[in-house]
Design a protein around this nucleic acid. Sequence first.
DNA 1: TCGTTGCGAGAGCAATGCTCTCTTAAAAGA
DNA 2: TCTTTTAAGAGAGCATTGCTCTCGCAACGA
Lengths: 251, 251
Amino acid sequence: MLVKSSALFYFRRSDIVLAMSSSRTARERVRAELTREIADIARRQLATEGATGLSLRAVAREMGMVSSAIYRYFPSRDDLLTTLIIDGYNALGEAVENADAATPHEDHTGRWLAVCHAVRDWALAHPHEYALLYGSPVPGYQAPQDTVAAAVRDTVVYGRIVSDAYHAGALNPPDVAPPPSAAFAEDAARVREIISDIPDDVVARALVAWTGLFGWVSFELFGQFNGAILNRDPAFDHAMRSHAAYLGLPL
Amino acid sequence: MLVKSSALFYFRRSDIVLAMSSSRTARERVRAELTREIADIARRQLATEGATGLSLRAVAREMGMVSSAIYRYFPSRDDLLTTLIIDGYNALGEAVENADAATPHEDHTGRWLAVCHAVRDWALAHPHEYALLYGSPVPGYQAPQDTVAAAVRDTVVYGRIVSDAYHAGALNPPDVAPPPSAAFAEDAARVREIISDIPDDVVARALVAWTGLFGWVSFELFGQFNGAILNRDPAFDHAMRSHAAYLGLPL
DNA sequence: TCGTTGCGAGAGCAATGCTCTCTTAAAAGA
DNA sequence: TCTTTTAAGAGAGCATTGCTCTCGCAACGA
């Protein structure tokens, strides 16, 4: 229900515009098409040059437009970036959703590992986009509210896996795992609004695994492993199995 | 010994220049001083504006110089950035070293937690510098060899803690922890060149904790926790204790 | 058919990084 | 001590960026 009521946010911006315009005038249809084309070119530029290499003027040039015309479609460079960020979150979220869906529902460990590999594969395939999402925030850029809904799309999938495993009684964390402090209760309750009801200690452990996944991928992508960890596929797989073990998933 | 032989790399670039120049001519002394001043102003600008907001011209303006004069000291903006990166790694490494040294040598868990908090505190105090080190790499920028020596300074401290704990027999990882694959042996050997001799499985678990630490800090700093995890100090502390537990450190 | 609205073109502004040349001053060599 | 070499700052200039403004033209709605 929560998913359903906020499903609109899952669409890409340009798709929304497109959907609205399909029944409108020709002018609006071409406007939506051009908006999409601008975003596509920008995404290609982002993929090759990186975020700071993304130039409105270069996009305009490639469109055969003069630079000022772009501003009819995106009020600023930041706004274009926001669109790309939302699209990126959605693309990653979709990859994660597909990976989860392709794994047997009862195989919670398999689903977790599938999600991990989906995140990493997507990140390796789209390094600059990943950097835009999970790297340093671009300066002076404050993530608008629009992004958060798309941003948690992968987290929702992950939360569902943890919740499923917990309610199936498949979670047996090692007894050395410390309980979270009482101060964590508020945050756990907030997290529970996104991912379904699991006790505080499971939320805490889930958080550790989740940050561990992205910590690893970021280290790998941002060059922290250079010269040290070279055989990365098995190392990553093992690290994610380790997180699974600590979470309490069966191996 | 390893530390001693490569101790030179632990100094900041500007410090090296300064040290060399103290016995040289007046011209070289003032050059070193100006180089230092440029780097200082740049660092202040980095702290307030972020990496992409760092402008050579603005630095020159603040120095009372014309912009082209800066190029007598730093051949390019990237070169200035490299200096700031090295300084950043050294500052973080120093903070980590101090935190470790201030904790009883036998209290391995305390040393690990001290290091974790040192990293996080430094990151929170210098967010833009942290982003420069562990966020997305700046576009077109390839980390020169100079940086790697400074970059591993914190890792060396961490490795020593793990090694100390292991050789003290203080490491009792949970039995659910999976063994690393045989393919990990090469990488483990490479890691052992930096941090002293510990078996492959300990290296693997150490890697999980280390990436988990930076994953958490990056999530917190780059806004991934916004709206969800607000009471961050206890949550962080618990997460790091969790990593400690999985590593096998006593709680 | 006519007024309104949207859109592209073009000029322009204030920045940026970086490259030249020129002049002056300091250091090194005779 | 005088001359030559070297270093450093000033200034102009180039190509580039994001963004704003005005001006027409063309499609749209009444």
